[in-house]
């Protein structure tokens, strides 16, 4: 062995560190790393007024690492709060992929003693993603993103949820922010400045300040991280490029993603609700729309015609 790992940065702790936090430079052992992640998530939840007493909180649970860690942490930090957590898994209908991740989702919900429901594209949209991919010309991730958001919203609304929590971490948020800028999508930036506009159940993102690496490490040390197969449709070109670019920048200039999100949040707060950035109701389904028919009705209508 070439060298020892040293000691945890916490005063009095003699345990070996498992991680160096890029923001603070702290070297933390398993116990203090776990406490640090949970503390930061708690600050995000409390500081953002994300959950109130009496709330039903729907948690989007894909069975992947981020949503699994989210459910694990929420079930811990909200343990003594008078809130009800319900995990919601969406079965998009992807042959050879979803079965295993749904099994993982059922397993973690059972271990945590959290109520769990599974809703499918087929029951709410009349078709599986596999079927839609054959009927529509756009990238599967585009179809899936639009429908999954609606299915999650509908399911959360049906159980009376006051909040819909998703497992987006710092890396996801930074990638989306940069993609919006690179796409010149000023409308989206302005719309998301009022995050709850037009949606049935307001979304919350408790992991939004935690880097993906720390989310994964938390999952490993809590023994809830299971490598699962990658979605066969994965590979959205722009996100993949942005991810690589941001990762490189973050490595060379620690804190890049945090600074990007701080600036992006300030920008959204300034432009949120600008003229033309609001949402209206879809004349067909009543769901949120940026004007006229919503994306869900557009997609399903287009699929029905082909």
């Amino acid at each position: 062995m070439a060298g020892e790992t040293g000691r945890c940065s916490c005063p009095g702790c003699t345990e070996p560190p498992i991680a160096v936090l890029r923001g603070s430079g702290e070297r933390l052992c398993t116990r203090h790393f776990t406490a640090s992640v949970e503390c930061r998530v708690r600050e995000t939840v409390e500081g953002g007024g994300m959950v109130r007493d009496g709330d039903i909180v729907a948690v989007g649970l894909s069975g992947g690492k981020d949503s699994t860690v989210l459910l694990h942490i929420l079930s811990r930090i909200l343990l003594d709060c008078p809130v009800r957590i319900v995990a919601v898994t969406v079965d998009e209908g992807i042959a050879g992929y979803r079965k295993e991740t749904i099994r993982a989702a059922r397993s973690i919900a059972a271990v945590l003693g959290v109520e769990h429901i599974v809703v499918s594209f087929e029951e709410l949209c009349g078709r599986t993603l596999d079927a839609l991919v054959g009927e529509l010309p756009m990238h599967p991730c585009t179809i899936c993103g639009v429908l999954r958001r609606r299915v999650l919203q509908t399911a959360a609304g049906n159980i009376g949820a006051a909040r819909l929590a998703t497992g987006h971490c710092l890396d996801d948020e930074a990638q989306s922010a940069l993609m919006n800028v690179l796409n010149g999508d000023l409308g989206r930036i302005a719309r998301t400045g009022i995050p709850d506009a037009g949606v049935l159940v307001p979304r919350i993102k408790p992991l939004r300040s935690i880097p993906e690496k720390e989310v994964t490490l938390y999952g490993i040390v809590q023994e809830i991280y299971t490598p699962l197969p990658e979605c066969p449709y994965a590979g959205e070109a722009l996100r993949s490029d942005v991810r690589g670019f941001l990762s490189t920048l973050e490595y060379r200039r620690a804190g890049t993603m945090t600074r990007l999100m701080a600036g992006y949040d300030r920008l959204r707060a300034r432009v949120g609700g600008c003229a033309g950035a609001g949402r209206v109701s879809c004349p067909e389904c009543g769901g949120p729309s940026t004007g006229g028919r919503c994306r869900v009705c557009e997609l399903l209508g287009q699929a029905g015609r082909r």
Binding site: G3, I18, S247
Partner: peptide, 19 residues
């Protein structure tokens, strides 16, 4: 940034000396 490393089964930070 994109990986987690363990040595002989134990998780280690990136500044650990190995060889």
């Amino acid at each position: 940034i994109e990986v987690i490393v363990s040595r002989n089964g134990a998780l280690i930070p990136e500044d650990t000396m190995v060889g």
